[in-house]
Nucleic acid binder design. Structure first.
Lengths: 192, 192
DNA sequence: TTGAGTATTGAATGATCGTTCAATATAACG
DNA sequence: CGTTATATTGAACGATCATTCAATACTCAA
């Protein structure tokens, strides 16, 4: 019988994801992917069809990863703190000196052409999913009495999502932009 | 004596700007620029040095254009309405069905590599400039009594700028995303 | 009218892009 | 051990990339 794959498909996907995340689809060449995954071109094409499809897989993986890690927050923090921790993570990133490459999904928004249906769908699905997760956290916070009952969960979820997106964008433009830390304070205000 | 240029350098710059604005630096090939400006490769290189430099000129032109048009708002609207009109323009864009390509500067944030000093500088300068313009509008609004005196002009200016950036990002992801219109309402709240 | 000087032209350049494929290596089965 | 089936290899492909440059077109001063 055949020969088993020599590489861990998931680890390779992870390395490719990081590359696309940092430099985007067009900014990441097949040569880059070959260098960073350690695979040969042929192996990549055998395993992932082509660059476009590999990119979509990475985007989907990121979506899944994000959903998972937000689910974990729900178990380690109170609802309100879980939301604020999203900002804290970003703040810690920029304070740590490491380059923040923002949100892979949001980065892809600007690069994706409108006619690119597959990517557009993943993006819209991810946005909706994160919005829902935040919304549920707000609702839970309201049940616990941690968040005022008069805040509109849906609208506020979108506002938090928007603030976070903006903060990550600013972080990329200027690591120490005041808005990054201010965005957390704003979020705090919206939830009290 | 020599032969005068056959093309209007400023119009060509404008067409190139539109191309880079829509599709980004990497997404716009020299072939595209040749097609859309009507110039030949050689003429482009003679006039603008190379693609990178042309891009920087476009970015600078956009910065200047933005500053100018925001200056005009100051004369046609009250300070508070001038700020809100920034959101109205975006809302009108997406309602009109036309594709909104966001803010050229913000789009470039994600594509620019950190070591690209020239582009990074233009971006940071533009961000600071717009922030200042909004800040001044807020201060004027406070003098007129249109905006409460207890809002922090600097911090609120950054918040408005962030909201607008997020709204434009969302517009690109989903033309009818609720956040686009909500961002205007939020801005209204922050200014009352 | 002519010569000097510059703008324009667009084919050609080498580099890099994404992708393919014939050759080779490996592992399980008979 | 030999056969079979699949994985891996990496050189090579055509397309496209940004860029160049010799040839040509043009204007103006002389």
């Amino acid at each position: 019988m055949p020969w088993e794959k020599q590489f861990d498909e998931d680890k390779v996907l992870d390395k490719a994801m990081r590359a696309f995340w940092q430099r985007g689809f067009k900014g990441t060449s097949m040569k880059d992917l070959v260098a960073e995954t350690g695979l040969n071109p042929g192996s990549i094409y055998a395993a992932f069809k082509d660059k476009e499809h590999l990119f979509q897989l990475c985007l989907a993986k990121y979506e899944q990863q994000t959903t998972q890690s937000m689910g974990k927050l729900e178990n380690t923090y109170s609802p309100r703190d879980a939301i604020l921790s999203l900002f804290d993570t970003l703040i810690a990133e920029v304070d740590g000196g490491g380059e923040s490459c923002g949100c892979f999904i949001m980065n892809s928004v600007l690069e994706a052409r409108p006619e690119d249906d597959e990517v557009t769908q993943i993006i819209q699905r991810s946005l909706a999913q994160v919005e829902t997760l935040i919304c549920n956290l707000i609702r839970k916070g309201q049940e616990v009495g941690e968040i005022p009952a008069d805040v509109d969960p849906d609208q506020t979820a979108r506002l938090i999502q928007g603030l976070l997106a903006a903060a990550r964008l600013m972080a990329r433009a200027k690591r120490d932009h005041p808005f990054i830390k201010e965005s957390r304070e704003h979020a705090e205000n919206f939830l009290s």
